[in-house]
Design a protein around this nucleic acid. Sequence first.
DNA 1: GGTTCGAGTGTATGCGCATACATCGCGGAG
DNA 2: CTCCGCGATGTATGCGCATACACTCGAACC
Lengths: 361, 361
Amino acid sequence: MAKAPTVYDVAERSGVSIATVSRVFRSPATVRDDTRQRVLAAVNELGYVPSAAARGLAARRTNVIGLFFPGHDETVPDKPVDAARGDTVPIVDEDSDRAPDAENLYFDEVLRGAEIEAWRRGFALMVAAGRGNAREALVTDIAGRVDGLAVLARTVPDELLAYVARRIPVVILAGAQRADDFDHVSASNGPGMRTLANYVLQDHGVHDVVYIAGPADSPDDAERLAGFRDALADSGLAESGVRILRSDFTREGGRAIATRLLAERRPRGILCSNDETALGVLDVLERRGIRVPEDVLVTGFDGISAGRNSRPRLTTVHQPMVELGRAAVHAITARLDDPGLAPQSFTLPVEVVLRESCPRV
Amino acid sequence: MAKAPTVYDVAERSGVSIATVSRVFRSPATVRDDTRQRVLAAVNELGYVPSAAARGLAARRTNVIGLFFPGHDETVPDKPVDAARGDTVPIVDEDSDRAPDAENLYFDEVLRGAEIEAWRRGFALMVAAGRGNAREALVTDIAGRVDGLAVLARTVPDELLAYVARRIPVVILAGAQRADDFDHVSASNGPGMRTLANYVLQDHGVHDVVYIAGPADSPDDAERLAGFRDALADSGLAESGVRILRSDFTREGGRAIATRLLAERRPRGILCSNDETALGVLDVLERRGIRVPEDVLVTGFDGISAGRNSRPRLTTVHQPMVELGRAAVHAITARLDDPGLAPQSFTLPVEVVLRESCPRV
DNA sequence: GGTTCGAGTGTATGCGCATACATCGCGGAG
DNA sequence: CTCCGCGATGTATGCGCATACACTCGAACC
């Protein structure tokens, strides 16, 4: 780690100019073969690694794309990392408190898609999770580092996004297709829920259903709810005939609302606006000995992996999370290629996945 | 997205020099209060965002840390991202082929820890997954962008690591504590397996066990196997008395080895070197109607979330994956603060987590 | 034989910022 | 009243690279 060699060092060593060294990396075809070999030899001997900072400055583009998603640091203690003390290994009985929340799994998959697509297109990927208070500083910090930014819906205030968007393209992930100046990438929420609801209402012939929506400010949730209402209309059912409750997209919230609901009565079907809520509902049903799907049908939305392993396994609408990440990067690079583009919206296809909690009829 | 304003624009607008503008961001305390207000006002009006490239170049440090982990792109088709065609939503029966592999979950958690710790310390986090062939270009590319690099063990050839390490600190994650010049961060593999094995051998009194190891080139696996042997010694058992098989850390591999094993005979306990292998073993046992834990005890190692939801739920040794990520970043920043530091090794504590597949006695 | 042209290379400049150093103004010490 | 010290600000420079432009040289052309 002696001070890093630069183009100048390489140029001197190989007896060419710095321009040629630069060209060896940026446009190898324009350099004669033996010259290139000589330069590369010097590069290897010196251990030269091009400085992305200098390149970014000179080229006015960093070739980095940023991904901003909701934070999760509250759950991680701020204690220093400590090493193992001796060889003592505790033996504990369970680790339920350690359960990863499914939301993270969702973003992990989005991240994976973004990572893949970014590098494929020659971009590096920088990630940041929203820290509650420091969010503003974080966002502008990352904005100064990247050529474009993908942001999970509702994690950054619009005002701040607008500020950043003056400088770089911003794409909003998994939010509704709002009529704003940002690019949007999201899943086909409405049609997905409509199809699933129709499966319950028509194929199963179950009309006695309750719909558990998510937070009122979630555009995704609004679209799903609208899809549910479409399904009601499809079956000629009056909206007044079904109950629509509101929860908060968490498993705990799902448990709470299910407890309240069951205290009154037991419907034949419970449609949830996301998987976590549905898993919470399943928890309560199991505890009460209510059989799923025999007594009650339950469905979710998202397709998180936890739903695949639940008992019973959860019927849901699967979002293409990896594809969402890829599409976000795609949208950004498209805009970088053509800044004049009108704001775009990508809606990715979903799939209804039938599992035990609402099986195929 | 008109061309981004610079310090010069801000300086002119607020009637100060560029040095003062710079100071407002780098050392606000040295700027008089009213001056700072004036500058910040101009910043807001212009939509100024400091260029990380320029800052990095001038300051000779990017404040970015890189995280390099094994690739997964093979599983993602290279087809273009396509939008939803119409509102058609297919209804499918299962999505087992879409199952995320547990290895990714492992790295997702490491990533989460790294992300948290990095931003806490004022670093941005850049991620890259190893692309088989393009790996070398990828590694040097990212090396040119960051101040330090954390690499999952066995994903980058030593030679390449050494090349990069001439320029920036490199820490190896989850590999064995080799005696090389890199910093290492890993979990307490040996003691963890020893403790778990002793629980089986002594507390359960089960001596008729088989150990299923992982790939021979995995340093983690070697440590775990050594821990198992220690446990044998602890109980005064001869190593020749137990069978040690080798698999490949995958669920599929676990199934294969279990099938072969059961064709011969059925031991009372099967200890696996990682969770995925154990899950594969459980698959086979269930298919054959062999009860776990009544007929056979099964244990894993890692603590991936899939093991929490398996049937029966898997007893394992839980690695602190989030902490691993944090520790890696910690190690890098420590070395950046003091480049002269001798190579360090952090070993993080693990926990034996008893679940149904090998319950508390 | 001179001219043209293009491939290959060198020279010069600027990207936007941090920072060492210089400068300025002001209050207190002498 | 002068001098010093110090806080606040300005000036000048360089970080390492990409690239526009200039230049050289040999081959093709008339």
